[in-house]
Design a protein around this nucleic acid. Structure first.
Lengths: 331, 331
DNA sequence: CCTTTGTGAGGGAGCGCTCTCTTCATGATC
DNA sequence: GATCATGAAGAGAGCGCTCCCTCACAAAGG
């Protein structure tokens, strides 16, 4: 009935518990014939170590929390970021033999639970994803003393290693590209200004424009398609003569293109559109979207690897991955 | 240094370990004054129960595995299904106080690990997502005796409770709608035929067409955008005169629309397109996509709830959720 | 020859908790 | 007043594992 224990294996193999433990944990100080003996017993009994018992004594769990802290994440959000990041990170952790505990920290309540969970040392480490300036989680988690890496630079000043793409350079590339195409009135649809990625992207937009003596035309979205459409409508109202728009992500760019179409503007003839991220959907818009490729999956994998190296006791410093403009037909 | 234990709390409160345990676990047989005494000690010491020790004796882990078993899940897949399903299920489990262990079972290797993991009882239950006919996991997991629910009806004949949407009815609605619109040569882009959803959808397509004496025009995709585009190109080659296409999901419909545009066909004038799922992106295609709304998030939540009720010892029977055609401008 | 060193295996305490069993106090019943 | 039922708190075994320590034995050195 009950699953076999170390002791059962030891009895069967005619050795001590200690020896079985050594074999199971791959310690080298076991003679090969005894090792074979033990392994046979393990297989015959179908022995699998009890993780709870093991972690009770080792104080390790071999699992890692991936905490996704976004504000609400409405029920209808088919967010490509989530899918890519979670998948890539999982793959990396699983390859390292770590289990992934996924926690959504959308509400304050959930954030408190997440903090508690981490403080209770139910996981060996934490990878934190996608938070905004007011998010108390980076600091709260850092305070638990559990190894922690942030996917994306935290907006608040807190001493947590992170991995990000070069938002500033990416956005600068996008805006320069529009200038080179001869666009004069270049608007932007920014993400929420409490997110570092949004800050960096709009900062670069402003910087490049001011270098060439042009003024900024700004609307704020929240990185969703619908907000992109709304922001675009707003921009058209503010400046009907605009001839280009840089959206801080592809989802908003897609929303913006829809709003432009509804307003009777042609893309790129009347208004050029550039996005950011290069999600797969950017290939399938009409026209296909010019965008800045940010290596989202790679960034997540790098975050995961950074955390794993931290866990091995190696020092962790922030990582910035390069980005690259992908010119398609929308600009 | 070390975190406080039950015993430390007991000493501080001047009671026995047993009493503290009762208080912490909310048992009613503790006098209120003593309960308060204990709670004060708990708060003062910042006591958090050690999950490993607890689960060593209770043989519960209060965690649930969500196993996503899709064939490869290429690095570039920003799959809306994944995001919605994982989020909705997580929300449900977290609300019930269960931790979610996410496991990607893309490779054979990963599948073996997942099976092992479940067999080792590292989780109390398993929610299995999105598998195909040849997938050995449903049977393998069922054999472990761990409570199991499948999100989507398993393709193989295996006795696992599941939750699905009414694929047959949904697809039938889509095809009837195209007929009502006066379309004569209606093609379909099916999903992989080893998936039950794909089987049901193409089955209904064939059924409705044969009722009206029309022939089937079929291409097979794999539920990705790119495969939808390829399948559409194939269909146009097979039957240049087709005037409608029913894609078994929205991603493929989006790919198909792109292929149609490239081939110089107008949607819906030359070719009407209907998708399936009603992902958010369906609103943002040009023209907006007519599609069958399948309640993906609701389905995932229902799967999660079914599993939770199974865990409470209640019997579990399959659940089928209704679907509804959403007519937009692509048909 | 005895002692030292090294190596591989066994013994057993203890990780922090739950849960059964026991004890004790209180009050009800006859 | 003796007996019993009831309810609340304590004692302690034991969950399955790791890891420190001990020990046996063999080889090497004096």
């Amino acid at each position: 009935m009950r699953r076999p224990t170390l002791e059962a294996v030891a009895t069967r193999a005619g050795v001590s518990k200690s020896t079985v433990s050594r074999v199971v944990n791959g310690e080298p100080t076991v003679a090969t014939d005894i090792r074979d003996l033990v392994m046979r017993a393990v297989n015959e009994l179908g022995y699998i170590p009890n993780a709870a018992a093991r972690s009770l004594v080792t104080r390790r769990t071999d699992s890692i929390a991936v905490i996704v802290s976004d504000p609400s994440a409405g029920l209808v959000s088919d967010d490509p970021m989530f899918s890519m990041v979670v998948r890539a990170a999982s793959r990396e952790f699983e390859a390292a033999g770590k289990q992934v505990m996924l926690m959504l920290a959308g509400s304050d309540d959930a954030r408190v639970r997440a903090r508690q969970f981490v403080a209770a040392r139910h996981v060996d480490a934490v990878m934190l994803v996608s938070m905004h300036g007011a998010d108390p989680l980076p600091a709260a988690l850092a305070a638990t003393g559990v190894p922690l890496v942030s996917h994306g630079r935290p907006a608040s000043r807190v001493n947590v290693p992170w991995v990000d793409n070069d938002n500033t350079d990416g956005a600068a590339q996008a805006v320069r590209h529009l200038l080179e195409r001869g666009r004069r009135r270049i608007a932007t649809i920014s993400g929420p200004l409490d997110m570092s990625a949004a800050q960096d992207r709009i900062g670069a937009y402003r910087e490049v424009l001011s270098e060439t003596g042009r003024r900024s035309i700004v609307a704020i979205g929240d990185f969703t398609r619908i907000s992109g459409a709304e922001a675009m409508a707003q921009l058209l109202e503010d400046d009907p003569a605009l001839d280009a728009v840089f959206a801080a992500n592809d989802l908003m760019a897609i929303g913006a293109m829809r709003a432009l179409r509804r307003a009777g503007r042609r893309v790129p003839d009347d208004v050029a559109v550039v996005g950011y991220d290069d999600i797969e959907a950017a290939l399938y818009t009409d026209p296909p979207l010019t965008t800045v490729r940010s290596p989202m999956g790679e960034q997540a994998a790098a975050s995961a690897r950074l955390l794993l190296s931290l866990l091995r006791g190696e020092p962790a410093t922030p990582v910035i991955l390069p980005t690259q403009l992908v010119v398609r037909e929308s600009s």
